[in-house]
């Protein structure tokens, strides 16, 4: 654990872009030119905000100092930065959900986990060997803020309980898992 300012960290930035050609590129440029390393871009084209904007979630790596520069540069370029650096999505959490995942609306389950925990689902694998009407399993990887894993687990348990799903939790930090 170090507070050194030259340590590279991961950040997630949420932007809202106007639906016009070239907007995404315009938004990514300040990141690259200010020394950020792009990890992933999640462009939610199908999910237009009430104001008609398109939300984009960008994962990047940068030192804290450069990250501040990136956010400033984005704002200077007139890009709507909804959330930046308030949270550091630095703890990955993998769980397995089992039960009637499909019949209980998997996408609703995921969005409720997302809403109630502030955790981002970064990966999902579903296995339904007996077909979608039968019990199935899903492996879900989430990114949460540092120190928020316990809270995220509590919310996941609540959602799972309500839907009669079963959660296989990871062993907490401190162990090897």
């Amino acid at each position: 654990m170090s507070d050194s300012t030259d340590e590279v960290r991961s950040y997630t930035v949420r932007l809202e872009l106007v639906d016009e050609p070239g907007e995404l590129l315009r938004a990514l440029e300040p990141i690259a030119t200010n020394g950020g390393n792009l990890l992933s871009i999640f462009h939610e084209r199908g999910n237009v905000t009430p104001r008609g904007h398109i939300p984009v979630e960008v994962d990047l790596e940068a030192t804290p100092e450069r990250f501040d520069g990136i956010v400033d540069a984005l704002r200077d370029a007139g890009i709507n930065v909804i959330q930046a650096g308030a949270e550091q999505y630095s703890e990955a959490l993998t769980i397995i959900l089992t039960g009637h995942l499909v019949n209980t609306d998997l996408s609703d389950t995921l969005s409720r986990i997302h809403e109630s925990t502030d955790a981002t689902v970064t990966d999902l694998s579903l296995s339904a060997p007996g077909g979608t009407d039968d019990a199935s399993s899903a492996r879900i990887r989430l990114a949460t803020e540092e120190g928020a894993v316990d809270e995220a687990m509590r919310s996941i348990r609540t959602v799972a309980d309500e839907k009669g799903l079963h959660v296989i939790e990871p062993l907490a930090a401190g162990g090897d898992a």
Binding site: T94, I96, T98, S125, S127, A135, H166, I168, L171, A177
Partner: peptide, 25 residues
């Protein structure tokens, strides 16, 4: 009793496995 083969398979694909763990902390 509720652990399914498919859950273990998903765990394995991710370099993990499932164990019945007793934890005292």
């Amino acid at each position: 009793q509720e652990i399914s083969g498919s859950a273990l398979e998903l765990a394995r694909a991710d370099g993990r496995t499932v164990r019945l763990i007793a934890e005292v902390v």
